[in-house]
């Protein structure tokens, strides 16, 4: 490629003026697009910083006049969900305690799966993998009830660990695919050299593969943290009200029919719930894109 460019010499179209008609249209369109995508975030933030009288008087696009952080405090510590009034903090800590074991367990299992599929193929391993990938397309509703029965059988129904198992199961297809593709892309010589040196299945995994695959673990973590944090369906079905994750509690707070609607508190609560994935998204940048691309590209 490099050589070809050198041979061709100067190339490309004549440099355009910076403010040509096409460019104005292009950047104009992009501006409108960016505006549409940012609008809801702007509305959330401004609404959550206004007092209720100001919301009733003005419109949702106005900037707040008297900035108040009271809605945030209220959403976090005193907003009511039917029975208890200790705010979203409860849901936040529930979500954290669901998140940590779910992410750890699902990534541990899926990385070993992917490693076995990439380097230690056995009879039938590809068949199971294909089933796993197709399983990702089965609507969850089809499997919800049998899983309730299975969890009840092992005594995990309604408990935090039951939900952890469910998240591990449903995160497995995408994560296994991710790890399998990554380990397959590593040079084969590496694996063979370790074999010659007498390392076994676990030895190679822990001493050769793990240290080399930090980036893919980060990608997997991004996928799982956002996915599990944003989950609503499994949380509402497989847990009990006192360990509901944040999304479920948020929905209960905002859509509760009792009392006067406090839109500023609702928006503060919504933002609080969205904050974790948003921070991960903005902090991870390209890795997030890589994570969703991994889901899109079939192995």
């Amino acid at each position: 490629m490099q050589n070809k460019y050198n041979l061709e010499g100067p190339q490309g179209t004549k440099p355009r003026k910076r403010l040509s008609g096409t460019n104005i249209m292009l950047y104009g369109t992009l501006l409108v697009v960016a505006f549409y995508y940012l609008l809801p975030l702007y509305v959330m933030v401004t609404t959550s910083l206004k007092g209720m009288p100001e919301i009733r008087a003005g419109n949702i696009f106005d900037l707040p006049v008297d900035i108040t952080f009271e809605p945030w405090v209220k959403a976090w510590s005193t907003a009511c969900t039917g029975l208890n009034c200790d705010g979203l903090s409860r849901g936040f800590w529930n979500s954290v305690s669901i998140l940590v074991p779910s992410v750890a367990l699902s990534i541990a299992i899926a990385s070993v799966n992917g490693y076995a599929l990439a380097n230690w193929k056995f009879k039938g391993s590809e068949v199971f993998f294909t089933i796993l990938i197709f399983g990702a397309f089965i609507p969850y509703q089809v499997m919800l009830y049998p899983i309730v029965i299975l969890l009840r059988e092992v005594g995990l129904m309604g408990s935090l660990w039951g939900l952890v198992v469910v998240h591990t199961i449903f995160g497995m297809p995408i994560l296994t695919l991710l790890f399998r593709n990554y380990f397959t892309s590593l040079p084969d010589e590496l694996f063979k050299a370790a074999r010659v040196d007498g390392a076994g299945f676990w030895g190679i995994y822990f001493q050769v593969m793990l240290p080399m695959s930090l980036p893919i673990f980060v990608v997997a973590m991004i996928i799982q943290v956002t996915g599990i944090w944003n989950d609503f369906l499994f949380g509402v079905i497989y847990t009990k009200p006192d360990i509901y994750p944040m999304t479920v509690q948020l929905n209960n707070i905002v859509n509760s029919v009792q009392g006067v609607k406090e839109y500023n508190v609702n928006m503060a609560a919504t933002l609080l719930t969205g904050l974790v994935p948003l921070i991960i998204y903005f902090a991870s940048g390209k890795l997030f894109v890589r994570g969703i691309a991994a889901g899109a590209v079939k192995g």
Binding site: V33, A34, Y37, L38, P40, L41, T226, W229, N230, D231, F232, T247, V248, L250, N251, T270, T273, G274, P277, L278, I280, Y281, F282, F288, V289, I292
Partner: peptide, 12 residues
């Protein structure tokens, strides 16, 4: 900017 909503949950 265009991708950030994808990080948010359906509930949000």
């Amino acid at each position: 900017i265009i991708l950030y909503p994808f990080a948010l949950s359906f509930v949000v």
